[in-house]
Amino acid sequence: MRPWKFSLLMVAAGAGVFALALAIRSDYLFFAGYVVLQFIVLATAWNILGGYCGYVNFGTAAFFAIGTYTTVALHKIGANSGRYLSGTLGELLQPLFPLSVPALVILSGAVAGVIGLGMGYLTLRLRGVFFAIATLAMAVVLQTLVINWEFVGGSRGAYIIREESLPMVGFKLGYVQYLFAIMLLLAAVALSVARLIERSRLGYGFATIRDDEMAAEAAGVPTLRLKLIATAISGALMGMAGAPYPYYIGYVEPAGTFGLQYAVNSIAMPMIGGTTSWAGPLIGAILLGSMQQIATVTISSAVNLLLVGVLLVVFVVIAPNGIMGLIFDWQHARRKP
């Protein structure tokens, strides 16, 4: 299937999901669905660097938080534009504020992508484990920075007041529904990007990095540049996923935004679904995401996080290629009598 056809299909599928959700008329469905969609974006983004290139990023929460706090900062500037936007430059920028959520998503993606690029530039020349450890440490440091940054609320956190609904052509759309639609579109974009990479020259390059960097260089693959591209794309998508979050949750504080659940979920979902294709993270995110939404209501959030951790360990030990790998093996076994 051609990439643009796939993207259209993804958007159509998204529209279908949205129409169905509207028909069911349950606000809870939108609330829970938003989180699952957010995990689809995060897991797909993680997999572009982790699954395709073999570089483990433990800093999903950091990139997500970059998006979240970009929104918080820009929202605050927008809400007090008279105070923060003075001078000629300020007056030029003033008409742009308050920024719409799609604009915030794009800006957050840019900020997270640039930070990812910088991180990568410092650590990607070295062995992959150093990159992994650096991302883990980066999460701690960004959290420290945010805790000490009073402008975005410091350790106390910040409240974001959103409107009840948005006037659309002909009818009023609830804000949660609006955010759900944005995240749906973002998921379609993330999956389209992942699939496009897989079938392109870039995808072959990423696979050679995962397999053997020395041989990749000898074949003419500019490994450092490709790793930087992967880190930037992956980081940007994670940042984009974090941008609408303040409007969704209404109140953000560092401990929650930098929570380990983002890191563990974005690793567990591709690992459980399968890391070599775009469908793996999607399957993993839908399964684990829905499971957690149900478990949070019925059991407790700590228990379901424990479950994610246990599933991650069990899958990497027993089924290294995830559910996609199991399906593949099963098909092979059936073909051979």
């Binding site: 696979a207 050679t208 995962r210 397999d211 053997d212 990749a216 074949a219 003419g220 070599t276």
Partner: peptide, 20 residues
């Protein structure tokens, strides 16, 4: 030998063709 283990034999040759 350092083949790209996750690619097919033909795709192993496709890499230098694409990148060089």
């Amino acid at each position: 030998p350092r083949p790209f283990t996750s690619l097919t034999v033909a795709d192993n040759l496709r890499v230098p063709l694409l990148y060089t």
